[in-house]
């Protein structure tokens, strides 16, 4: 068996190189958007958007099997559902905050159920598992271009509006008194997260996108002093987890997405437990 690095350099197996480039690009999105998701405590909300995506994928597959035009693709279906979910959640959040939890959970369940039903009614083999857990080795050149563009857009926006994002995340009420369009910022953040989720679920799958949006950022939160530091640290951690997971999946022939999340989860739990024990020891002494 050739080594991972030989495979990366080998032009006859481009999917390995694509997977590596994809992991690097995904790491920045996981790091930056994950930090915003974590400090705003909207991980559940991102989870709902990512699971709603399955409904869109199922609907697109079903429509194509019934003779719909070729431009209808699972990614388009996923994108439409993700954006609709983001808009619905933000409207509920603005108009009826107390119903937010119910709506998030309802979207989560309805999206997944629709996906399973549409796939069951789609002739041929459409396995929801492949969308739930993804396959990083299926990343195409086109996926990479879209991911690269999304990275550039997110980076430019964060650099230009960093102080505004920080203020709206830290204290929305005060930010509103300073004339910041806090609701528009919130909606825009959800839409960017929705688009990113659709792109990123190709790599690690719907279920695991949410883990990668929270675990590297959560780990970075232990030793970051500000949001910018958290974004940088979290991106570096996501990069390490992704590349390490990819290499180990190649070596041990294991699913890459699951392995990446497992590494991220173990590091997060390890550091959490370590800090807890350290805190107990220092409080005793």
């Amino acid at each position: 068996m050739i080594s991972f690095f030989q495979a990366v350099m080998n032009p006859s197996v481009p999917f390995v190189r694509n997977a590596l480039i994809g992991s690097v690009l995904a790491a920045f999105l996981f790091g930056i958007l994950g930090s915003m998701v974590t400090v705003r405590r909207i991980a559940g909300l991102a989870g709902a958007i990512s699971h709603t995506v399955l409904g869109g994928i199922g609907l697109a597959l079903f429509l194509v099997s019934r003779g719909a035009p070729g431009w209808i693709s699972p990614m388009l279906g996923a994108l439409v559902f993700a954006i609709l979910a983001a808009i619905t959640i933000s409207i509920v959040s603005i108009k009826a905050k107390q119903r937010e939890d119910t709506v998030i959970n309802a979207l989560w369940a309805i999206g997944m159920s629709l996906g399973v039903i549409f796939m069951a009614k789609t002739p041929g083999y459409a396995d929801p598992m492949s969308y739930l857990f993804g396959n990083i080795l299926l990343v195409t050149q086109k996926n990479l271009y879209i991911l690269g563009a999304l990275n550039i857009i997110v980076l430019l926006l964060v650099v230009r509006f960093y102080r505004h994002i920080e203020a709206a995340s830290f204290d929305e009420e005060f930010a509103a008194t300073k004339g910041l369009p806090v609701m528009a910022i919130y909606l825009f953040l959800l839409l960017i997260i929705a688009v990113a989720i659709v792109m990123l679920q190709t790599f690690v799958g719907i279920v695991m996108v949410i883990a990668m949006l929270t675990l590297p950022a959560g780990t970075a939160g232990f030793f970051s002093h500000n949001l910018a530091g958290m974004m940088v640290n979290s991106s570096i951690l996501a990069l390490i987890f992704s590349v390490l997971g990819l290499i180990l999946s190649w070596v041990f022939d294991l699913p890459a997405g699951a392995l990446i999340v497992l590494i991220a989860g173990m590091v997060y739990i390890g550091i959490s437990v370590g800090r807890m024990l350290q805190g107990r020891r220092s409080s005793k002494s």
Binding site: F161, R163, H164, F170, A175, K178, G179, L180
Partner: peptide
């Protein structure tokens, strides 16, 4: 520093 913000 947030106090210095004014709109976007």
């Amino acid at each position: 520093g947030m106090g210095r913000l004014s709109g976007l």
